[in-house]
């Protein structure tokens, strides 16, 4: 099945089980460049697994995932890792910043994994930290900053490589509504300014309201609300 024209990332008929647990049961997904799509659904519905599959972290049992004309299922782990390094960015709920590194080193990390020199990497890291208003934390360690600040550092880290797709899994899950909304505002602003697509997994409606459209995952099946109406 060829993906609709203009889409950046498309998935069809994804299936994935962890042992006896069926996480995805024929889910589908598509996103355009610059689009923010919320993936909603009750917990345990398989929305995180959908994100992991789309990002090439977990290979699906069956189904196709096409990114920019390339089939992810046909890539080996090294290829998918390289794709994640260069084309994708990630923000998780928590536990993602390396506690030993300072904030600016954390933000610079993806660039350095791509082979950018330390100086260069930390310079662009700092400019992203400025955009997310956390540049004053650059020499602090993650253990010394608040949850909202840490999430903004994580967003800066996800965007520092100029990814074309940003995957965010409950990015505000551990934050109060004020901090959560600020993070969402900065995240969507930054993504729009770079024309990055955002896959936003959340169960919170007010977070999902920052998206352009949403799909609902229930019992491993997805439902695209825009197409349904």
């Amino acid at each position: 099945m060829t993906p609709p024209p203009g889409t950046l990332l498309t998935a069809e008929n994804l299936r994935k089980s962890y042992g006896p647990t069926v996480a995805l049961d024929g889910a589908a997904f598509s996103i355009h460049p610059g689009e923010v799509v919320a993936v909603m659904g009750p917990s345990g519905s398989g929305k995180s697994t959908l994100l992991h599959c789309l990002a090439g972290i977990v290979p699906p049992d069956s189904g196709s995932i096409t990114y920019d004309g390339r089939e992810l299922a046909g890539m080996n782990d090294a290829g998918r890792s390289a794709l994640r390094r260069s084309e994708f960015g990630f923000v998780f709920q928590f536990g993602q910043l390396v506690p030993e590194l300072t904030c600016v080193e954390n933000v610079a990390l993806p660039l350095r994994l791509n082979g950018t020199s330390r100086k260069e990497a930390e310079r662009s890291a700092l400019s992203w930290m400025e955009r997310l208003e956390v540049d004053d934390l650059k020499d602090k360690r993650p253990g010394e900053v608040s949850g909202g600040q840490g999430q903004r550092v994580a967003v800066a880290r996800a965007l520092v490589t100029g990814p074309r797709v940003l995957f965010a899994d409950e990015p505000t899950g551990a934050l109060d509504s004020l901090n959560g909304e600020r993070v969402m505002e900065l995240l969507t602003d930054a993504a729009r300014s770079t024309n990055a697509a955002v896959v936003l997994v959340t169960h919170e409606a007010r977070v999902a309201a920052y998206s352009d459209r949403e799909i609902v995952v229930r019992d491993g099946r997805s439902r695209d609300m825009e197409r349904a109406i």
Binding site: A205, R206, A208, A209, S211, R218, M225, A228
Partner: peptide, 24 residues
């Protein structure tokens, strides 16, 4: 009945998006 709820949810979110946009 799920359809009814999903349709309603989409409608709600549409309103919320508009409000969020206005808010920003």
């Amino acid at each position: 009945a799920t359809d009814i709820l999903d349709t309603q949810r989409a409608e709600h979110l549409r309103s919320m998006r508009i409000l969020t946009d206005r808010k920003r």
